[in-house]
Write a protein that binds this DNA or RNA. Structure first.
Lengths: 186, 186
DNA sequence: CTGAATATACACTGGTCGGTGTAACAACGC
DNA sequence: GCGTTGTTACACCGACCAGTGTATATTCAG
């Protein structure tokens, strides 16, 4: 019905991401996505050639959205690099403690498709993780970090690892301990 | 043909792990596992009730095997905690650079099934990661680390994160940089 | 020799799912 | 109004796949 194709497109991408995010790639069906987006399966295929193309587009959109949300946040109260990173980890811990948390959708989907290097998901995830790392480096630079790029990379490595272990063990201690270690360090 | 059920059992578990490891859970079929193990599908179901049960058993076995391999290694030339960890990361980097590398099978499968907390894969992965962390803590203790448990946790977090980012970006720099950072630190 | 355990061969079921075909309908731009 | 674009409704296909049924064969322990 709606004349503006954009709204439908976004509804589909958002529904797709929500489902892929929660249950991975293989176990989500096109029928489900259509239902979630309140649209016919035929409409899905009118806009996207395949499930692969759809998830690619959905991840690109979500990457842009979540980066935007991050930029909007960017806690001004945190004046030192350490305080900024501590704030980030605290938000992460709270998120990780929500029931049914399944980690980062990008990481999850990349791993599910890790034997398919050319898959659209891979490129979208790569771009997103890179953008996040660059954003962190920028925030560190603004707070006069000694070496923003190196510190951002080190932090992203630790953050990613803490998320994985939190998920594997079902215990956000890995995130909180990381925060404590960072605050104890110079 | 063979009457010793154990040999068949192990062949099945090994074949199953090899396939699940490379291609995840959903995209591996029981037929494939049977073919890889040189056994009939019917034999698979003689020994295991379901695909879920099989992957659980396969991961348990693989966890024990790889832990055993680790213990056998345990580089005696590395006398300090830092040297030990650096050696570990170097091995990891080499592994990560083998073509077609898809990261840790345990992490990958846990993430693919991260919305299914009761799945056998989850328990097996948890047990394995815990055993690895404890082994590292033990090795650190033997080399007179100040706080082996804390250091082992911190290291596991970084190692896991470095593996994930190496996989996402297709660049083992994340592992090598981590090694460099650890060697530069006190 | 016998019987239980292990294995094969192979057809089959029941369900799922990505993707298509087709006809018709709604909304808008011009 | 008229053609283009977006959308529905719905049946359908072809492939795949977990798991089963059944009958038969091999091996070995007792």
């Amino acid at each position: 019905m709606p004349r503006t194709s954009d709204a439908t497109l976004e509804a589909i991408q958002d529904a797709a991401f929500a489902l892929f995010f929660r249950r991975g790639y293989a176990r989500v069906t096109m029928e489900e996505i259509a239902a979630e987006a309140q649209v016919t399966k035929r409409t899905l295929y009118y806009h996207f050639d395949s499930k692969d193309a759809l998830i690619g587009a959905a991840l690109e959109r979500q990457g842009a959205l979540s980066l935007q949300a991050m930029r909007r946040w960017s806690d001004p109260a945190a004046q030192t690099p350490a305080a900024f990173l501590a704030g980030l980890l605290e938000k992460l811990a709270l998120w990780a403690e929500t029931p049914g948390w399944t980690g980062s959708g990008f990481t999850r989907l990349t791993l599910e498709l890790s034997d398919l290097p050319g898959h659209p998901v891979r490129a979208a995830a790569r771009a997103h993780k890179l953008a996040v790392q660059e954003w962190i480096a920028g925030e560190l630079a603004r707070r006069a970090a000694a070496d923003p790029d190196v510190e951002a990379e080190a932090f992203c490595v630790m953050m990613e690892g803490a998320m994985i272990l939190t998920l594997i063990h079902g215990d956000a201690r890995y995130i909180r301990d990381l925060r404590a270690r960072l605050e104890a360090a110079p």
